[in-house]
């Protein structure tokens, strides 16, 4: 296709992506270098019958005026990145110097909002992704073996957790694990502990969120694996059987290698989606025990006093995280592409 025609065809789509994806990335970088104006303070002398006293008040009008004039705020350089809510360089150095053991150091690190969010985001991403792969593979193997009449309805039901809005899915589970909900109450009975609450302790909250993540994403890997299973050649399986491979060995040495490209695909999709974990934290009201990078950006942006600079700095750090996450994939694809061309 000639360059000119190509450009005409892709132009609207490209324009939308440049305006609303590329430029905003530039915009967060600029915003992250600025910080909100401080409030303008004025000193007023109040004279009463018992003499005069000086009083400092916030000059609301002047504050509004300066905010109006320079909505971006004042230039702060990389100050926002280094402050306590982000990389917290000073606090980390202090913690490193004062902590006696590595455990104590990480304990102190977890009190810093950015590191707390990063820890959960990474844990969530790297625990949920493999679990989703394993769960999906087993469901696919099992569903593949049931009578074909039942397959349709089973797939229908399986799609539900994935298709349903993440916020809604997490709310539904949140209501069920409530101490007065069916799962929460049953767990209390089972453990014989009337004060057991999945919402109270950080560990249980993390486990709940991870369980939600697997429940939500397992259908995706199930469907992909299930479709892949239909393409495994019957001859190879029979040949393996004649060679004396047991059922598990056939799965291990024939089916799984056949699924390898699918594993790469699912892993890539899951890493991207799990890294931006956000809705479940809102749905489970889990912010006290678990926050994610996306969540702290959201938290900065909502409410009456929006901290654009702070949100932007976290956004830039998050984007860097995505870049690190994607680098291996991009390098690999680049190599494949070159090999194909050569």
């Amino acid at each position: 296709m000639p360059h000119r025609t190509f450009l005409w065809f892709i132009f609207p789509s490209l324009l939308a992506m440049i305006l609303f994806i590329a430029l905003p990335i530039g915009s967060v970088i600029v915003q992250s270098l600025y910080i909100e104006h401080e409030q303008v303070v004025k000193t007023v002398e109040n004279c009463g019958p018992f003499g005069c006293e000086e009083e400092t008040t916030v000059d609301a009008e002047a504050t509004a005026a300066i905010r109006e004039a320079e909505p971006l705020g004042r230039f702060n350089g990389i100050g926002t990145y280094l402050n306590r809510s982000h990389l917290a360089v000073e606090e980390v150095r202090q913690a490193w110097a004062e902590s006696e053991s590595l455990g104590a150091f990480f304990g102190r690190l977890m009190n810093l909002p950015f590191y707390k969010a990063l820890a959960f985001t990474l844990t969530y991403t790297f625990v949920v992704t493999p679990l989703v792969l394993v769960a999906g593979l087993f469901i696919a193997l099992a569903v593949n073996s049931i009578p074909s009449r039942l397959k349709g309805p089973t797939i229908f039901v399986s799609l539900l957790p994935m298709i349903v809005t993440p916020l809604i899915g997490s709310l539904i589970l949140f209501w069920m694990i409530d101490a007065r909900g069916i799962i929460g109450a049953s767990l209390q009975n089972l453990m014989d502990d009337p004060s057991l609450s999945l919402k109270a302790s950080p560990t249980l909250t993390w486990l709940t969120l991870i369980a939600y993540g697997v429940w939500h994403s397992a259908p995706f890997s199930f469907i992909v694996f299930y479709a892949g299973l239909q393409t495994v050649p019957e001859e190879t399986l029979e040949a393996a059987m004649i060679d004396g491979a047991s059922r598990w060995e056939r799965v291990r040495y024939v089916v799984i290698p056949y699924m390898a490209p699918l594993v790469v695909f699912i892993t890539l999709m899951q890493l991207m989606d799990n890294f931006r974990v956000f809705e479940p934290i809102v749905g489970f009201s889990a912010a006290a025990n678990a926050t994610s990078l996306s969540y702290i950006i959201y938290n900065d942006l909502r409410g009456d006093y929006q901290q654009f600079g702070s949100a932007a700095a976290t956004s830039v750090l998050t984007i860097l995280g995505v870049a690190v996450l994607l680098t291996p994939v991009l390098i690999r694809t680049w190599r494949d592409f070159n090999r194909k061309r050569a």
Binding site: I25, V28, P71, F275, L293, I297, D300, A312, T314, T318
Partner: peptide, 13 residues
């Protein structure tokens, strides 16, 4: 792969 909320923080202002 961009988390949507990072883009949103670019739009708001």
């Amino acid at each position: 792969a961009m988390p949507h909320i990072t883009l949103v923080s670019g739009y708001l202002l």
